[in-house]
């Protein structure tokens, strides 16, 4: 116990500034946004994706994502009929600048946009030692960057590779589902920039959301269902070779 006391005394001045803001109460919340009235997710319609990279670029400029790190990215799969289980996948710079032209052959090509699945039973928030990352009341997985230690345990725990340690802030960073936008009634930056509607923000608690009709008539899948994460990024016509 001597140890803690000493540790704390040493750390006091360093953290004093941070505490000021940490201890502060609730700042002005967005008007008319009721957290408990929403349960957010994303619909990704694979046959509509043209691999233009607009979503990756939009995400990077909306959220100041540092170069070489990705809150969302696009993969291009190439599955040949002789080797269904072993697809050839590329994602040059996350698909930010599009993809090299592909030529017709016996295989099939398709694009898979990836992002945080905003899992309901998220393995990343489960392992956070201090409660710096969490599933909000509206189903969005967020990081409290003023509280995060930067231990990277959550990065290890995410089965989808959606998290990274921010190179200058030195804390975990990830897709916020554009929380600053959806709480103001806007859609996410990636959805705004998607030309074909391959990505659509969905609110599962809103009975008028078109997702309900869509789910009734389409074969929708999540990534790595064996992980049982309660993922809320729903993929339409997801190929079995996608991991």
């Amino acid at each position: 116990m001597n140890m803690t006391r000493r540790q704390m005394l040493v750390l006091l001045p360093a953290a004093a500034v941070a505490w000021e803001s940490l201890l502060a109460g609730t700042p002005e919340s967005s008007p008319n946004y009721e957290q408990t009235q929403h349960w957010w997710g994303m619909l990704i319609d694979i046959p509509k994706c043209i691999g233009c990279g607009n979503c990756v670029r939009a995400c990077q400029s909306e959220n100041d994502v540092p170069d070489g790190y990705f809150r969302t990215w696009v993969e291009r799969y190439h599955v040949t009929d002789t080797n269904l289980a072993n697809p050839e996948v590329i994602s040059p710079d996350g698909g930010k600048h599009g993809f090299p032209a592909a030529v017709e052959d016996s295989g099939k090509y398709f694009f898979v946009p990836k992002m945080c699945n905003h899992c309901a039973d998220s393995p990343c928030t489960q392992v956070c030692p201090v409660g710096a990352t969490f599933v909000g009341p509206d189903g969005v997985v967020l990081v409290d960057q003023k509280y995060c230690l930067g231990c990277a345990y959550c990065v290890q725990a995410c089965p989808y590779g959606c998290r990274y340690i921010h190179p200058t802030k030195r804390v975990a960073d990830k897709c916020t589902l554009c929380y600053h936008r959806i709480t103001k009634g806007l859609t996410t930056a990636c959805c705004e920039a998607c030309p074909t509607g391959a990505r659509q923000l969905v609110d599962l608690k809103n009975p008028k959301d078109p997702i309900h009709a869509f789910l009734k008539t389409h074969a929708v899948q999540v990534l790595k269902p064996q992980m049982a994460t309660g993922a809320k990024a729903f993929y339409n016509e997801l190929d079995g070779s996608v991991r």
């Binding site: 940490l22 700042p27 003023k146």
Partner: peptide, 19 residues
């Protein structure tokens, strides 16, 4: 709201919009 700093929600929501 849970095992986290409730104020973080509004701090994140308060970020500026670019699009």
């Amino acid at each position: 709201y849970g095992h986290y700093r409730g104020a973080a929600l509004n701090e994140i929501a308060a970020k500026p919009v670019h699009f």
